[in-house]
Design a protein around this nucleic acid. Structure first.
Lengths: 245, 245
DNA sequence: TCAATCCGTATGTCCGGACAATCGGACTGC
DNA sequence: GCAGTCCGATTGTCCGGACATACGGATTGA
């Protein structure tokens, strides 16, 4: 059994991170079965030639991911359930691509407009000041799945329509050095208006899933505000929550 | 400015936790303004008579909460935005109570039924084996807001109808020593059926917000499976996401 | 037979120190 | 004026050790 764990001290990758990756791989791969004990930290550290704090840091990162559970006086064991997909701030595009859906994007509008009161408040800019407005339609298998309207403060990045059609908004932001930090999100439902129904290929009054989101970078600056509508027959929000303890 | 931080070494509360609480309070209270530097760890440790690892542990916990951002070579600063409510696994009851809504609960059904295939799969029990079934209506201001149908494996806890009407399901679980760990969740929308419309006081075909959830304890055992429907005019899911980096 | 106590074990907390990596500004050279 | 370089500041990583705390089983006692 006892897994061939090893670390490469000449690597620039932190030792605790190397260990964490190997443990995670072992769990994923099934070498560490759910419910099994991990063996005590002291001995594990000795076996790897690491100090206990380093081993603890590796284990802690997996505990934070929900893969392991520690019990004082007992040990550390692999969580039994199939925890896999923690909720993260990812773009719809990345989500779909990861699911192998090969999403297509159609940019309907890519322009600059004066900010309404709502948008100005969300982005912390002056009312009527210029903001980017991007309207996109996301399709899977040739069928519309979501209508997305996003606003961005000016000067943040130049939105190239061509790029927006082949990748996601978040990826473009990261590419220009914006460090995403957090997002405030609201998920609801409502009946489709005539315009929405038309865009998404639904009937007027049909139920739609809605999402509103404001995203902040690590300086606290709002970098994006968006209102999205989804066809509930083709999309739902799936995620896993961890209890913060 | 320089905040009167102090720790009580005779307290059973861990030192890093005391410090984290004080820092969080200072941020909340405004004593530490957004964007301001926190001062280097070494000096902070010296000032408090703590070691640097302890100070780092305190700071790290706030970084994990999204309140602080560290930058190598620069320092640690307070996040600018109003991060407040990270997404956590809380019950609807607790959410509403925290919002001062004084929720009321009406237990419609509290019985034991044989598990259907779907429920058996979610709870990892044998098909047709006995499971608890609880149907509840959640009301705010005398108006129905959500219809909740939950299933629990047998022998976990005895569901008292009276208790279910004055507190939430999760609180009852915690009270009997169940450590909630994670939940798999799915949020969608659909048109109300005649029965749903009737229960919630909506019209048939009206859009409803739906949520399905399976909750696991820290041994990986499924402890609850529920399907909920919400009136979108009275409820939406609001939360804050952090980028895991 | 059952309950209370003891004890080994493993994690939780904390210390003090060392060196590396990175950021940003100051300085220098072209 | 501008680009490249140097350097101080600060966090990131890692070590080895110490004691506290809690869990669970074994032992002990009623």
């Amino acid at each position: 059994m006892s897994l061939d764990l090893s670390v490469d001290r000449s690597s620039p990758v932190p030792l605790y991170f190397q260990l964490a990756q190997q443990l995670e791989a072992a769990i994923e791969h099934g070498a560490l079965t759910p419910g099994s004990l991990l063996g005590n930290e002291i001995e594990l550290a000795a076996r790897l030639g690491l100090s206990r704090p380093t081993v603890r840091q590796a284990i802690q990162s997996l505990v934070d991911k929900g893969l392991l559970v520690r019990r004082r006086g007992v040990g550390t064991q692999v969580v039994h359930s199939k925890v896999r997909r923690p909720l993260e701030l990812s773009s719809l595009f990345d989500d779909l691509e990861a699911a192998g859906q090969r999403p297509a994007t159609k940019v309907l509008v890519n322009t600059v407009v004066p900010a309404t009161a709502e948008i100005a408040a969300a982005l912390s800019v002056a009312e009527d000041s210029d903001v980017h407005r991007v309207e996109r339609l996301r399709l899977t298998h040739g069928e519309p799945m979501a209508y997305m309207c996003n606003y961005l403060p000016p000067g943040l990045l130049d939105l190239d329509t061509g790029q927006l059609e082949v990748t996601g908004l978040y990826r473009l932001m990261r590419a220009v050095g914006i460090t995403l930090h957090s997002a405030r999100q609201s998920i609801g439902a409502r009946a489709a208006t005539a315009g929405e129904a038309d865009r998404l290929g639904e009937d007027e009054g049909a139920p739609l899933l809605t999402m509103e989101r404001t995203t902040f970078d690590d300086t606290g600056r709002a970098v994006e505000f968006g209102t999205h509508t989804y066809r509930p027959s083709r999309y739902s929000f799936e995620f896993q929550l961890l209890v913060r303890s």
